[in-house]
Design a protein around this nucleic acid. Structure first.
Length: 727
DNA sequence: ACCAATGCTTTTTTT
DNA sequence: AAGCATTGGT
C-alpha cells in the first residue's frame, strides 16, 4: 500500500534534544579530522564528490555542540542558496540553533556590513547597487565626458573598460599591468584609462552607488581604515569557514585574512582541480599559497569519492591528469559496478536534441525522476534547441545560468522606478526611467538626472551642524538626502521642463513617485509600479506579450520581502539563478529536469548527466584557444561537468555550424573536444560509443572525415559493435 | 540639436 | 536579444 505524503504547513518540528553522540559518526578519518580540528587555520582539499558539504555541515553542528555560539560562526559559500542548504542540513543533525549562523557570499556579507557601517566611508543611507550593465552605462558616460568619441574604435569600449577596471581591483595589479597583459593594443592609452577609472570611482561616490567590485573593495577599505570595527568583527566571528576557496580572488583572500586576524580560526575548503573562475580574477594561489599566509595551517585531503561509480571516475581522472598543472590526488571510490560513460556522435544539433529527449523519456519510464537528471553545457545558448525539443515533448525543465531575467530590459525598467525611490542620486536609473517618455532622449535625460543629483545633495533647508551631535547629524542628513517624499525638489527640477512635449507626464511622474515613496510594502509599491508602467511597456516592446509573465515573477519575489531596500538590493546581490522555467507540461514544479551551464552546476550532483556539444570550439570555446591558461580552465570545466554524474554520463558530440562567430562563417566544427581525445589516447576503453540510426532507413551519415587516423574516435579501430539506437 | 527608427553585428562563463 | 552606427525627421 502506498503511503501518501502530506505536508503540514506552518509547522516545524521542535528542536531535537541535544544529541549525546558526537557528530563524527559515518565519517571517514579525514573528514573527522576536518570536523574536529576547530582551532587555528585549516586547509581542506576536497575532491569532487568527497563529502565536502557533509563535512562542513557536521563541522557547524560539532562547533555548536561544543558550546560555540552560532552567531560567532561565519560560513562563506558561493551562492547564498548553498549556505542556506548547508545550515538547514546542519539543523537536521544538530539542532535549530545552527540556523542562526551567518552565511552567504562574500558580496552579500559585504553588503550587510556596508548597510550598517557604510556611513563611515561617506555612503548615504539608501545607496544602490549597479549591476554589470548599469556600471557599463555609467562608464560610458565618463568615457564620453572625458572626450573619447563613441566611434573611436582605437579607444577601448565601455565593456572593455569595465573588464579592465574589474581585473584591476580584483587582482591587485595596476591598470597599466592589466592593459599590457590583457589588451596590449591599448597600452598607449593606459594613462587615460587610469584617469577614467579615477573619474568613474569619484562618480560612483557622488551618486551614492556601488558596483559589485565596490562591495568588496569598500569592505576592505572599511577593515583597513576602521581598526575598531575590524576588531569587533573578529570578536564576533570567531570561526570562519570558506567554501569553494579555489574560486576566490586576492581581494577576497585579503578580506578573509583581515577578518580572521592572527591566530584566528579559519577553515577554507576547495579543490584546485575545479577552479573555473580565473576569468573573473580567481587565483589558485589562494589555495596553493595558504601555508605562506597561515604558516601553521593544518592540511587535510579528502580524496575518497562517494558520488560516482568507478567507470565515471576513470574517465574524469584521465581528463584531469592530462592537465599542465599537477594535482596530487586521484579520486577513488568503493562503489562497485556502474556503466561506462557513453559517447554519441551526431550529424547535427537537432539529432542531439532528439537523442536527449528520447533517452530522458526512457530513463524516466525506468523510474529515474526527472529531478535526478541534468543537461549541462558550456554557454547559455548551447541548450536552445534542446529546450525547444523538451517543450515539444512535454518534459518540464528549469534552466540555470545564461541570461538572467533580472538583466532583461523590461525588468530593469521596472526596477529603475524602485531604485530612484531608494536613491534619488542614482542617475543610471533616472535615465532609464526618463527615457521611457516620448520625445525625451539621452541628452535631456542626463540633463535632468544631473540636476536631480545636485538638488538632492543640497537639501532645501540645511541643518545647522552645531545644533546636533555628530552622529545624529550624519543620520539626519542621510534621511534628509534620501527622502523623496514630502518635498518638492522633484517638482522644482521637473517644472523647468513643463513646456516640453513630455512636461505633463513628468509632473505626473513626480506625483506618482511621491505616492510610492509613502507606501512601505514592496508588493504594494510594485503592483502600483506595474500598473503605471504597463502602457509605457506595451508601447516600448513589440514582444510585450512574451515578456509580460515576468511581471508575475517579480511580484512573487517582492512578496518575500517586507522591506523595499532589501528587496531592491537582494535582487541584484543574490539574483534568482533560474533563468527559465518550463513547467507548461505538468503545471507543477515537483519533478523537473535541470538544464544548466557548467558554471552554475558547481557543487551539485545528479544520477544522470548529459553534456551537450562536446565539440572543439564549444568546449574548449574558441575564445580560450591560443591561451594556455584559459585552455586549462576549459579542461577543468569539463572535469567539473563530468564529476556531477553519479551513475550515468552521456557525452554528446553533434557537428555544429559556427554560424555567427568570429570564425569563418559556415565553418562546421566536427572534432570532439580535444580534452576527450587526449584522455582516450592511452585507453580508449574508458568510453562506450553509441551510434544513432534514424528510424527511417536513411543512409547513415559518414563520419570518416571527422577524425585523423590516430584518433581514438576513428571508427576503423573501434572493434566493438556500435549500439543500435533507433529514433 | 536632439530624438527615434532602422539595420547591422555580436554572444563564454558570474558575484 | 541587445548594442552600435547610420540616417531621416522634428
Amino acid at each position: 500500500m502506498e503511503i501518501k505524503k502530506y505536508t503540514l504547513k506552518g509547522y516545524t518540528p521542535k528542536a531535537d534534544a541535544p544529541v549525546a553522540t558526537s557528530h563524527v559518526e559515518g565519517l571517514n578519518p579525514a573528514q573527522i579530522q576536518a570536523v574536529t580540528t576547530t582551532e587555528g587555520p585549516v586547509l581542506v582539499i576536497a575532491g569532487a564528490g568527497s563529502g565536502k558539504t557533509k563535512t562542513l555541515v557536521h563541522r557547524v553542528a560539532h562547533l555548536i555542540d561544543k558550546g560555540v555560539s552560532p552567531s560567532s560562526i561565519l560560513l562563506m559559500t558561493f551562492t547564498r542558496k548553498s549556505a542556506q542548504n548547508m545550515l538547514r542540513r546542519a539543523s537536521l543533525i544538530g539542532d535549530r540553533r545552527s540556523e542562526s549562523v551567518t552565511g552567504g557570499t562574500f558580496h552579500s556579507f559585504a553588503h550587510m556590513i556596508l548597510r550598517q557601517e557604510g556611513h563611515l566611508l561617506g555612503y548615504r543611507n539608501g545607496f544602490t547597487i549597479l549591476d554589470k550593465s548599469d556600471a557599463e552605462d555609467l562608464i560610458a558616460g565618463v568615457r564620453a565626458d572625458m572626450g573619447a568619441q563613441k566611434s573611436d574604435k582605437r579607444f577601448p569600449q565601455k565593456g572593455t573598460l569595465a573588464d579592465i577596471f574589474g581585473k584591476h581591483v580584483n587582482m591587485h595589479q595596476t591598470i597599466d599591468q592589466i592593459v599590457g597583459k590583457e589588451c596590449p593594443q591599448f597600452s598607449e592609452f593606459s594613462e587615460r584609462i587610469e584617469k577614467m577609472f579615477a573619474a568613474y570611482t569619484a562618480t560612483k561616490r557622488r551618486l551614492n552607488v556601488l558596483d559589485y567590485d565596490d562591495l568588496l573593495t569598500e569592505l576592505q577599505r572599511l577593515l583597513v581604515t576602521e581598526p575598531e570595527l575590524c576588531l569587533r568583527l573578529r570578536q564576533r566571528f570567531r570561526y570562519v569557514m570558506v567554501d569553494e576557496y579555489q574560486d576566490t580572488n586576492l581581494l577576497q583572500a585579503d578580506i578573509v585574512e583581515r577578518l580572521v586576524g592572527p591566530g584566528g580560526n579559519i577553515m577554507v575548503v576547495g579543490d584546485d582541480a575545479q577552479s573555473i573562475y580565473a576569468f573573473r580574477g580567481a587565483d589558485i594561489r589562494n589555495m596553493t599559497g595558504f601555508h605562506d599566509r597561515f604558516p601553521d595551517a593544518v592540511r587535510i585531503m579528502l580524496a575518497e569519492n562517494y558520488r560516482s561509480y568507478q567507470p565515471i571516475l576513470n574517465l574524469t581522472n584521465a581528463v584531469i591528469s592530462r592537465s599542465r598543472e599537477t594535482f596530487d590526488k586521484q579520486l577513488f571510490t568503493s562503489r562497485e559496478g556502474g556503466q561506462l560513460p557513453v559517447f554519441v556522435d551526431m550529424s547535427d544539433i537537432y539529432m542531439q536534441s532528439a537523442f536527449v529527449v528520447q533517452r530522458i523519456q526512457e530513463l524516466h519510464e525506468d523510474g529515474i525522476p526527472l529531478s535526478e537528471m541534468a543537461v549541462l553545457f558550456r554557454s547559455g545558448f548551447h541548450s536552445n534547441d534542446v529546450e525547444l525539443a523538451l517543450h515539444a515533448a512535454g518534459l518540464p525543465f528549469q534552466k540555470f545560468g545564461g541570461f538572467k531575467f533580472i538583466e532583461s530590459a523590461h525588468v530593469k525598467d521596472i526596477m529603475a522606478f524602485l531604485r530612484v525611490l531608494q536613491n534619488p542620486s542614482d542617475t543610471v536609473s533616472w535615465n532609464r526611467v526618463l527615457m521611457m517618455f516620448d520625445g525625451l532622449g539621452q541628452k535631456t535625460a542626463s540633463d535632468i538626472s544631473e540636476q536631480l543629483v545636485v538638488a538632492f545633495q543640497n537639501p532645501p533647508e540645511p541643518l545647522s551642524e552645531d545644533s546636533l551631535s555628530e552622529g545624529l547629524f550624519a543620520e539626519t542628513m542621510a534621511v534628509q538626502q534620501n527622502a523623496i517624499t514630502d518635498d518638492d525638489r522633484l517638482y522644482q527640477v521637473f517644472f523647468q521642463f513643463a513646456g516640453r512635449r513630455f512636461g505633463s507626464e513628468l509632473l505626473d511622474l513626480a506625483t506618482t513617485l511621491s505616492r510610492w515613496a509613502s507606501l512601505e510594502n514592496p508588493s504594494l509599491v510594485l503592483a502600483d509600479v506595474l500598473a503605471y508602467f504597463k502602457p509605457l511597456f506595451e508601447k516600448r516592446y513589440d514582444d510585450a506579450k512574451r515578456r509580460e509573465p515576468d511581471f508575475d515573477t517579480l511580484l512573487h519575489l517582492a512578496a518575500k520581502h517586507d522591506d523595499m531596500s532589501a528587496f531592491v538590493s537582494e535582487l541584484l546581490i543574490d539574483p534568482p539563478q533560474m533563468s527559465q522555467v518550463d513547467t507548461s507540461a505538468t503545471g507543477s514544479e515537483s519533478d523537473v529536469l535541470t538544464l544548466s551551464t557548467i558554471h552554475s552546476s558547481k557543487g551539485l550532483e545528479w544520477k544522470v548527466v548529459f553534456i551537450l556539444s562536446l565539440v572543439d570550439g564549444y568546449l574548449p570555446s574558441f575564445q580560450a584557444m591560443g591561451d594556455m591558461r584559459q585552455l586549462e580552465e576549459e579542461r577543468r570545466l569539463l572535469y567539473v561537468a563530468m564529476t556531477r554524474a553519479s551513475e550515468q554520463l552521456y557525452l554528446l558530440k553533434p557537428n555544429v555550424e559556427a554560424g555567427w562567430g568570429q570564425r569563418i562563417p559556415g565553418m562546421v566544427m566536427s572534432r570532439p573536444s580535444r580534452f576527450l581525445m587526449e584522455a582516450l589516447m592511452e585507453n580508449s576503453g574508458l568510453l562506450e560509443r553509441w551510434s544513432l540510426t534514424p528510424e527511417t532507413d536513411m543512409p547513415a551519415p559518414d563520419f570518416a572525415d571527422m577524425a585523423e587516423p590516430s584518433d581514438p574516435f576513428d571508427s576503423r579501430d573501434s572493434g566493438d559493435k556500435p549500439k543500435r539506437y533507433g529514433f
